[in-house]
Design a protein around this nucleic acid. Structure first.
Lengths: 129, 129
DNA sequence: AGACATATATGATTAAAACATATTATTAAA
DNA sequence: TTTAATAATATGTTTTAATCATATATGTCT
């Protein structure tokens, strides 16, 4: 219950401050594909990995992670199997060849976006376009 | 009419291709603030400047630019005046101190985001988190 | 006259994000 | 030993944003 309260407190702050900026949600799909390209994983673990990528806990929408996984599967970019052998049952996902192609497209765009952000910062700091 | 057809054609393609990725729209607000921090400007000119920032014509939603301007004004980040002296009337915008503060916040977040994109790319290319 | 560029704006639909909550099982600690 | 916390997956609702389309007016060029 402590965490949820903290989360709510943080959200209030952001509402008071009028600008919301990019949320992490948009980054969930490519991140999941990236992680799965390194090996099979499952929802809960992927959330942990997102934190490693530098997203703080409060900015990750857990529900969005699971929804994204199901959507990716529906579209053939990943596939899943229930794993019931361990202590807990978990739905383990694997990336498909189709998914790898999608990831490559993401990487291309992310590189472009990185350049755009760089030129934004340069321009802010007095550079020219 | 030619441009509109081209635009529609491109949109069809993106629909067929299932992933939509980040749209430019989210970048409109900070870009406008950035441009206005360099001096007064108006909608149509800001759209031209967006193209200079590296966005291709088809990905800019003209309507969104004007809507963003009105919203920014409503919230006190910019202010506008009709300029009727030239050949055409135009609504010229200026950034406010409040707007400059918002821009600084954007820059901070954009720097963070840039780092996130870099670590994404590194990791894709075999790096560690 | 007709096409194209300049200039601003809004209406409607669709998609996504944000927020909240539900459920079940397991382990740790009071 | 029952409470609290963590592991694990999932969905319902509401709010916000994006997409697409269209309206309008004036000026310039051929």
């Amino acid at each position: 219950m402590k965490l949820k309260e903290l989360k709510n407190r943080l959200n209030e702050k952001e509402k008071g401050c009028d600008f919301s900026l990019h949320r992490v949600s948009r980054f969930i799909q490519p991140s999941i594909l990236l992680f799965l390209s390194k090996g099979p994983s499952y929802g809960y673990e992927l959330i942990e990995k997102l934190k490693d990528l530098g997203f703080h806990e409060e900015s990750i929408d857990i529900g969005a992670v699971y929804r994204t996984l199901r959507k990716l599967e529906k579209e053939g970019f990943v596939k899943s199997l229930w794993k019931t052998s361990g202590a807990r049952r978990k739905r383990v996902y694997q990336i498909t060849p189709h998914g790898k192609t999608l990831l490559r497209a993401w990487v291309k765009r992310i590189k472009e976006r990185k350049l755009a952000l760089e030129s934004f910062i340069d321009f802010y700091q007095g550079g020219k376009l």
